[in-house]
Design a protein around this nucleic acid. Structure first.
Length: 577
RNA sequence: GCCCCCGUAGCUCAGUUGGAUAGAGCAUCGGUUUCCUAAACCGAGGGUCAGAGGUUCGAGUCCUCUCGGGGGCGCCA
């Protein structure tokens, strides 16, 4: 409806320009729902945009525009000039009610679009290395990535969810060494480092303690889960592994155990990945070697101090980077470039990498390297999200990754459940810091907890239906809703709001910003809940059968939008609570 | 020192890609109601949009500078 109106306006503006002898292109003008309802259903700024080109006052042009627009094919019932030259437009009364019919006919397809037309898109997110349980920051990324994927699917894209994990390199060696150290400690063959030395990097680190060697790495992983993995190995293998290197069985055991737990956590969040991609496979398949070769051909690779560098300054960046260390081991950057080459090879039209703010600096280097390789860097898009803090009683809960005193996703989930978790994690725009208010999240009162507020609004539509059935009234079929009977201001406002859903979903997809959906749902629920509650003025189930059918139709429409919106956020839409 | 993000009500945050009188939740204070879900609904107060310039019909939004917070600037990932 908005498109049709905008089109009419563009054409009218074109006629105005040509009449004034201006053959230039017609500028695209805004046709937006204004903040204030008194300003009409839509407002257009076209007159002000054209003022300079036509060298006439905007209000005069606005009048011409209205004349030219006529009744716009019956779409518009009223048009007014306002303020500096806005044209406020009111749609013909039955247009909104008509919207209700088309919404109901679309049903659960309402709000879908084919913008993506089956284009393959990859969303890569979480990608945490299997060195420990998921932290709240990973949790945010998991929800953000999954919601972006859902939004893209809703827009018709063929989405692949991918998890890239780094299972080579130093971190994994340290992980294996940490487990082995705990293994030896538990067998009485090594001493645990003193607490104060673990907590404070400036404390002395003893070689031996009570006659036993201290083998735990200085930068080892300190979480309790490390000891549990070690204990598991003792239970199964006894002392048979004392001569096994940390890099071997210990590393493997830790990786597989931790990774299984991560997948379990993701599953509890309702997230399924299509592909788990291991960095190691890039080496096994020769992709890393291939990439070095290709980079060398760009002429931007050189050797210095025994390391292999790439001249990124020639690509407009502020410094050079090492791609292969003097030890012969590639840096993180190299397999990352190889990984993106591999992604491109899989034919994705677009590759979206969701990453934490600490990776912000890396994006440009990957893109520059791809460009140097003759690949289109615009096919990669980075979505960076800021960090998460937890607060309670107005105070921030202190967390430290190194000391493993951070709150895990699992711990949080055991308190608040996946739906609350998801909503809280997706309520902020990615580039804002996110303060997770534990007290509000734990709140059971549905009027206070924003997640329950949305879900209850949905459950209420079912509550009304149950009540209707009890009274022998059925929900009306989509084509049998006498929508013209819905003429209360709050009903029209609600219908108008429901009509925004497709635009909101599409915009959220295009801007990779699921929080828009969360805010929109709050608005819908914020209109719907009071409407239902205010039964003194208007019950849903009335003596008037026709009016009741109309209001049940509205109930159904609200249910569709809330159900679809909750689904875009990956939240359950319960029928009762 | 350089780069990126953020700064909006007491608190946590939105702000439709530059539109009209800047919004929501929580908290606070008042009023109504006892219901299709466990109490809900209505209303009020609260703002120099960090600050200063600039761009233009029009700036919370774009540009420059300053201040404050976070992140990054490694042959870590």
């Amino acid at each position: 409806m908005r498109e049709r109106l905008a089109e009419q306006i563009q054409q009218a503006l074109g006629r105005l320009l040509r009449a004034a002898g201006d053959e230039g292109p017609v500028p695209v003008v805004a046709v937006d729902p204004p903040r204030q309802a008194e300003h009409g259903d839509y407002a257009c700024n076209g007159a002000m945009v054209l003022a300079k080109r036509l060298r006439r006052p905007p209000r005069e042009i606005a009048q011409d525009l209205i004349d030219e627009l006529g009744q716009a094919g019956g779409l518009v019932s009223r048009a007014e000039i306002a303020g500096p030259g806005f044209v406020n437009l009111w749609l013909a009364g039955d247009r909104w009610q008509g919207l209700l019919g088309s919404l109901l006919r679309a049903g659960l397809d309402y709000g879908r679009s084919d913008t993506g037309k089956d284009q393959p898109v990859q969303v890569e997110f979480v990608s945490a290395n299997p060195t420990g349980p998921l932290s709240t920051g990973h949790g945010r990324q998991a929800i953000l990535g999954d919601c972006i994927a859902r939004l893209l699917e809703n827009a018709g894209y063929d989405v692949t969810r991918e998890y890239y994990f780094n299972n080579g390199g130093r971190q994994m060696r340290v992980l294996g060494d940490s487990v082995k150290a705990r293994y030896l400690e538990r067998l009485g063959r090594a001493a645990a480092p003193p607490e104060n030395a673990l907590k404070d990097e400036n404390e002395a680190w003893p070689e031996t303690l009570g006659g036993l060697p201290v083998v735990f790495p200085r930068d080892g992983y300190q979480g309790d889960y490390i000891g549990e993995i070690a204990q598991g190995m003792i239970d199964r293998e006894g002392e048979g592994l004392v001569d096994e290197p940390g890099e071997g069985r210990f590393r493997e055991e830790a990786e597989s155990t931790i990774f299984a737990e991560i997948r379990q956590t993701l599953s509890a969040l309702g997230i399924d990945f299509d592909v788990y991609f291991s960095e190691a496979s890039l080496y096994d398949d020769g992709k890393v070697e291939e990439t070095i070769g290709a980079l060398r051909e760009t002429g931007l690779v050189y050797e210095e101090e025994g390391a292999v560098w790439m001249r990124f300054s020639a690509l407009g960046l502020d410094r050079e980077r090492v791609i292969v260390k003097s030890s012969g081991e590639p840096t993180y950057l190299l397999p990352d470039v190889a990984y993106h080459r591999e992604k491109f090879g899989r034919g994705f039209a677009k590759v979206i990498d969701v990453q934490g703010a600490d990776h912000k600096d890396q994006g440009p280097f990957v893109k520059a390297a791809l460009q140097a390789l003759g690949l289109d860097p615009a096919r990669v898009e980075f979505v960076f999200h800021e960090f998460v803090t937890l607060s309670s009683q107005g105070e921030t809960i202190k967390q430290s990754t190194r000391k493993a005193t951070f709150i895990t996703v699992d711990e949080l989930l055991s308190e608040v459940g996946p739906d609350v978790f998801r909503l809280f994690m997706v309520q902020r725009r990615p580039e804002s810091h996110l303060d997770f208010d534990l007290d509000l999240a734990r709140e059971q009162d549905w009027t206070k907890n924003p997640a329950y507020y949305l879900q209850y609004a949905h459950a209420r539509t079912h509550g009304i239906e149950r009540q209707a059935i009890q009274r022998g009234v059925a929900m009306p079929a989509a084509d049998e809703v006498p929508a013209e009977r819905l003429d209360l201001p709050e009903e029209l406002e609600l219908i108008k709001k429901l009509g925004e859903f497709p635009e909101v979903a599409l915009r959220a997809a295009e801007t990779r910003a699921p929080h828009h959906v969360a805010y929109y749902l709050r608005e819908v629920a914020g209109l719907w809940n009071p409407y239902v509650q205010d039964k003194n003025r208007h019950g849903i189930l009335t003596e008037d059968a026709e009016l009741t059918a109309a209001r049940l139709g509205l109930t159904q429409a609200v249910r569709v939008v809330l159900a679809r919106g909750l689904d875009l956020l990956g939240m359950a839409a319960p029928e009762r609570m």
